[in-house]
Design a protein around this nucleic acid. Structure first.
Lengths: 140, 140
DNA sequence: TCGTATTAGTTGCTTTTGTAACTATCAACG
DNA sequence: CGTTGATAGTTACAAAAGCAACTAATACGA
């Protein structure tokens, strides 16, 4: 029997994902008290502009209860502003506040720095291949 | 600003890890009511033989409280047997029961099938490169 | 051999996640 | 209109994870 845990791709992926997230997670958690879902919502709003919670769910592939809680927390922290839409009062448009935009800018910069540092020991081809592989596995 | 979430390696890794784990998780959860930590403990005992909880923690990189709870649950399910060690009564050696070995065999087989299916659309070189990359990222 | 430090493992409490049920609003069709 | 069904979002409750304090046993130096 030669099957080892390290031969099992889901295990390897999880270990790599955990290791790669740990430090960056510490950054936004320590500096802004944010959770991972909050960072993702912030990113979507900062990168793609105002949208409803539903759109965030669809684009980010996060369940609506998680988004709902993240939005509530971010509202509390004054990172976002909720705007009720007159034509359909079930929706509310989510906008970043000025503070939210600053935090977004800071975290994005840090993310890029972080990403670059992590990939610095790999060649451009390796990284490209890696991305292609992961994208397929993730079904994106 | 061209930085996209899919350019961020931790994001990609997490998405891929989640996607790749989902189905297999459903298998051991549905069939045996097991949690991920339990599957990992089971795997370690089945693959590397009887050991103490401490050794499982070290080898698997799981925190001792998680292992403690997994061991309690697996004891309940009669997957393992705990043997107190006479020379140092703080330790207890964890052994798989006959039932535990059967479950291990079943899950291992399923894991291999699962792994093979997931990687079937990639070439041997791609897979090898992938493993190398992930192993480095994971720091294994 | 007493006191202090270490180690294995467990328990309690808090935070986070998952699931399902719920509210409110709107659409569509008789 | 009015009933039925869908949709956006929230809330309540249960499962799971994280963290720190705790117990029990052992080691080891003064």
């Amino acid at each position: 029997m030669s099957f080892d845990l390290r031969d099992f791709m889901p295990y390897l992926l999880n270990q790599a994902a955990d290791a790669s997230s740990r430090d960056f997670q510490g950054y936004y958690k320590g500096k802004y008290g944010m959770l991972r879902t909050e960072w993702r919502v912030l990113f979507h709003l900062g990168r793609y502009g105002a949208m409803t919670a539903r759109e965030v769910c669809d684009r980010a592939g996060i369940h609506k209860t998680k988004v709902s809680r993240a939005v509530a927390a971010m509202d509390q922290k004054r990172l976002i502003r909720r705007e009720e839409m007159a034509q359909d009062r079930r929706h509310e448009m989510l906008h970043l506040t000025a503070h939210g935009r600053r935090v977004f800018a800071d975290l994005t910069e840090e993310a890029q720095r972080f990403d670059a540092a992590m990939l610095s020991e790999f060649s451009a081809e390796e990284v490209a291949q890696m991305r292609a592989f992961l994208t397929r596995i993730a079904g994106l």
